[in-house]
Design a binder for these strands. Structure first.
Lengths: 243, 243
DNA sequence: TATATTAGATGACGTTACGTCACCTGCAAT
DNA sequence: ATTGCAGGTGACGTAACGTCATCTAATATA
């Protein structure tokens, strides 16, 4: 029967010698053989037990509980609960990522974030709100899912939308009207982007802008002000009169 | 200017009073105002700072480093690195989940796991091996991705495959030939399953069984023994002679 | 008015899962 | 003869708080 020394076990499982000695000390994993000089030798069974321990530890179970549970749980039970734990972590991570992306994108829109925005986003992460996509029909969802730039989406398209909205906000601040050269440029950029996104489906596109008028809590979008929406509509209308 | 007491802040951010006092103690977050009785009052700026701290803490940065970094990093920098961190966690989690699923499925096939199987799987999780899907053509991948039951897939189809393989192993152990009633039943169940999976594409199906003959390290599959594969082929051949 | 409750404060010690350090041993190689 | 290495044993240190005993000021209730 092959046996392993502390050093060998450490390398295999990437843990420290101290850890093994500690587990021996607290009677969690005692090597099945100790020679006259006190050197520890681990059997294959010991390694299985160690594996169980590490799995249970990854559930952030305290070592004391692990010691009590170890013999009562089968390998499979441990693996299954480990699996469930990982799944839960996964969904938490995903919502965390989406919230972080939202915040980052928001920072591009506002120079300084208001405290309330941040709090709302972080608090909402507990019980996720109605998602904007729910405002559309079932059969449209699959298409929208990838195509529409929600604020939780940090791809290139989203960024371009954000840049355009910034540009519009700049225009409003500097009293530049939608019916101007700048307005024309914005309108054509917007139309090109929209065309890319909606592939010519004008009805979907209009629905999209309608939804963006709703307050942020309901849609998950960063709310676009009435002023910006008006600028969009007027600049596009102006562009169409010239065409 | 609104101010918040310790208790209020604790509830908002779901941390303990002790934590706030500790942060004060180590000079990480000192409330901007203390009254004559030593009661702490936090301003909006303080709350922003706390938010930064909690974000950096979630990167598992030690508090001491956080204190040094806090003024040097903008909110956005923090958010972006937080985002990167989360992404990394996500991919780790995903491979962890897939490995765990593999192990669980393996346990259905073997009553006792051999130590070497476990070690290989856990070690491979560091640098992911060639994936089985790479054995197919690019344009076939998208179809295969969802349809084929790899061992890292715990859906219903996978489970049915595993049950069938267990049944075949049972037959082999009890010396029941492929050319028997039991063999016939297995063959028809297999064919039905394969039809579901491959939607009649027999060429893909044959490739699939070919790949399963390769050793596990290369494919990521649980290796099917020659005996089982032979049983499969013979039982199907037998079924076809009777049809 | 007396008192009970609440929301805060301050030491001081405890906790987990090890890291780190000083020092000791048996054995192989130089 | 000594050097290096892989292992050992206390003993103390660490991070980020939890917990406990005790104290204080303000408010609510009898």
């Amino acid at each position: 029967m092959k046996q392993w020394t502390t050093g060998e076990v450490c390398k295999q499982r990437d843990i420290s010698i101290r850890t093994l000695r500690y587990y021996d000390q607290i009677n969690l994993l005692t090597p099945s053989f100790k020679d006259a000089n006190g050197r520890r030798y681990y059997s294959e069974d010991d390694l299985f037990k160690l594996e169980k321990i590490l799995l249970l530890k990854s559930l952030s179970l305290p070592l004391e509980n692990i010691r009590d549970l170890l013999d009562k749980l089968s390998y499979k039970q441990i693996l299954v609960s480990h699996h469930n734990y990982l799944q839960e972590q996964l969904s938490k991570l995903q919502s965390s990522i989406s919230n972080t992306t939202s915040l980052i994108n928001m920072m591009d829109l506002e120079d300084s974030l208001s405290w309330e925005h941040v709090v709302k986003l972080v608090q909402n992460s507990q019980n996720p709100p109605k998602k904007w996509i729910d405002y559309f029909q079932e059969d449209e969802k699959s298409f929208l899912q990838g195509a529409i730039p929600s604020i939780s989406n940090n791809d290139k398209t989203t960024h371009q939308y954000i840049l355009l909205i910034q540009r519009i906000e700049w225009c409003i601040k500097h009293n530049i009207k939608a019916e101007s050269d700048e307005g024309l440029q914005i309108a054509s950029a917007l139309m090109e982007l929209s065309n890319d996104t909606f592939q010519g489906d004008t009805e979907l596109m209009e629905q999209f802008w309608e939804v963006r008028k709703l307050p942020a809590e309901e849609t998950g979008f960063y709310p676009i002000s009435e002023e910006v929406l008006e600028f969009v509509e007027r600049s596009i209308a102006y562009a169409e009169t010239l065409a």
